[in-house]
Amino acid sequence: MRFFPMPFHSLMLFVVWLLLNNSVSAGQMVLATFFAITIPWLVKDMRDEHPKIRRPFLAIRYILMVMKDIVVANVEVALLIVGPIKKLQPGFVAIPINMTSDLGITVLASTVSLTPGTVSAEVSKDKTWLYIHALHLDDEKALINEIKTRYEAPIKEIFGC
């Protein structure tokens, strides 16, 4: 671990460098390895502590589920946009969250922004409430329940926080 203080980031740097150059020739491999070792070594003191991913398989399943939801939600939102505006019932909702890590809250807020017709707007100071804006709000309770069970519970399990 002395050469790779951030193994995941090293792997990502290596892959992204090869992708950007679109080649797997020996010279590019050497250069990519060089970057994968030196850049994490230079920046390892600058980063904050984040919780580790405890359940990698659950994380992959979560990503696939979110991708499917993005497509479904996009079609729904597109239909809402093209449909009659007068029938839309926008609304603000406060969702109680109980997560301790910043990374978990960020992932949850980003997921909420990308998926079910909602945009996350603000987090309260003590990080216990997430404020969101919904484009079409039928049932407040159902929306809160859906976000808590469908998105928050897996994130808590993945990061173990």
Partner: peptide
Amino acid sequence: RLPDIYMRLHSPTKASTL
């Protein structure tokens, strides 16, 4: 088309990304 800023936020973040 949408009437206020909070509603307008929805269309570029979702539809344009897809």
